[in-house]
Simulated scan of single mutants.
Amino acid sequence: MKAQRLSLFGEANPSAMRTGGFIPAIKSAMGQAAKKSAFSREQILDRMNALAVSAGVRMTKGRSKVISLDTLDKWLSSEEREHVPSLLALHIFCLALEDTAPLRAWLAAFGCDVMTAEDRKLRDYGRACIEDKARAKAKRKLEDMILEEWR
């Protein structure tokens, strides 16, 4: 029996996850990523702001190219449902922490996940194995046809 990897948010109620449940999942994943990070919130903020400034982008709708610690705290708080980071802010957050968990939480709403470099190698290996078996099967079929003709 194939082992199944269950998602904390998506499996129990997939309809809710696809509608509104993904926002708390993303915020929770952001909070967990921040907690497990080696960076303090202030350092996370500095890293995010530096990335945004260097890219010349804004993470919020306002005029400022940087965010405040208060804004970051609201994004990381599951209780602050009205304060949701933009897609760009989520991207910058993931880059600043070098952690794709928040992105994975969002993709889970679509039944998707992030593929790592190791995952790609294993996929390519599996594909090569299947192709080898298909070629071996075709080869055996041709051998059988040739042997039938010789009989």
Score class of each variant (00 low, 15 high):
Ile26Arg: 05
Leu51Asp: 04
Gly31Trp: 06
Lys121Ala: 11
Leu45Asp: 00
Ala16Thr: 03
Ala33Gln: 04
Ala96Leu: 07
Lys36Met: 12
Ile44Gly: 01
Asp144Pro: 04
Asp99Lys: 10
Ala89Asn: 08
Arg63Cys: 02
Leu147Ala: 15
Lys35Leu: 15
Glu11Phe: 00
Asp144Gln: 14
Arg151Asn: 14
Glu42Leu: 12
Ala108Ile: 02
Ser68Tyr: 06
Lys74Gln: 15
Pro102Ile: 09
Ala109Gly: 10
Ile44Pro: 04
Ala33Glu: 02
Ser7Asp: 07
Gly20Thr: 12
Lys121Tyr: 11
Arg81Gly: 03
Gln43Pro: 01
Ala33Phe: 04
Gln4Phe: 07
Ala29Trp: 02
Asp124Trp: 00
Phe93Gln: 05
Ala3His: 13
Ala138Arg: 13
Tyr125Asp: 09
Lys74Asn: 14
Met1Ile: 06
Leu95Asn: 15
Ser15Leu: 00
Lys139Asn: 12
Arg140Phe: 10
Ala105Met: 03
Asp144Val: 06
Arg58Leu: 00
Val57Gln: 08
Ile92Trp: 07
Gly56Val: 08
Ser40Arg: 03
Pro14Val: 01
Gly10Met: 02
Ile130Asp: 08
Leu103Ser: 13
Lys139Pro: 04
Arg5His: 05
Ser86Val: 07
Gln32Ser: 10
Ala101Pro: 00
Val114Pro: 04
Val53Met: 10
Arg104Asp: 14
Val57Gly: 01
Leu122Thr: 11
Arg127Cys: 07
Lys121Val: 15
Leu88Pro: 01
Leu72Met: 12
Ala136Phe: 12
Pro102Val: 09
Asn49Glu: 07
Leu103Lys: 12
Asp113Val: 00
Ile130Tyr: 05
Ala16His: 06
Asp46Met: 04
Trp106Pro: 00
Ala25Cys: 01
Phe9Glu: 01
Ala134Arg: 14
Ile67Thr: 04
Gln43Lys: 09
Ile130Val: 10
Asp70Trp: 06
Gly20Ile: 10
Lys65Asn: 11
Arg151Lys: 15
Met17Lys: 02
Ile44Met: 01
Ala136Tyr: 11
Leu103His: 11
Pro102Cys: 11
Arg140Thr: 12
Met17Thr: 00
Glu11Pro: 02
Gly20Phe: 10
Leu107Ser: 05
Leu97Gln: 02
Thr100Asn: 08
Met115Pro: 02
Leu51Trp: 03
Ala89Lys: 07
Met59Arg: 10
His91Asp: 15
Pro24Thr: 03
Pro85Glu: 07
Glu82Trp: 03
Gly111Thr: 03
Asp144Phe: 10
Ile26Pro: 01
Val57Trp: 03
Lys27Trp: 04
Gly10Asp: 00
Asn49Cys: 06
Asp70Cys: 05
Cys112Asp: 13
Ser7Trp: 02
Gly20Ser: 12
Trp75His: 14
Lys36His: 14
Ser64Trp: 04
Leu103Val: 13
Cys112Gly: 05
Gly21Cys: 02
Glu42Ser: 14
Ala128Gln: 10
Glu131Lys: 13
Ala89Val: 10
Pro14Asp: 01
Ala138Lys: 13
Arg47Trp: 01
Ala134Thr: 11
Met59Gln: 14
Lys74Tyr: 08
Leu97Met: 05
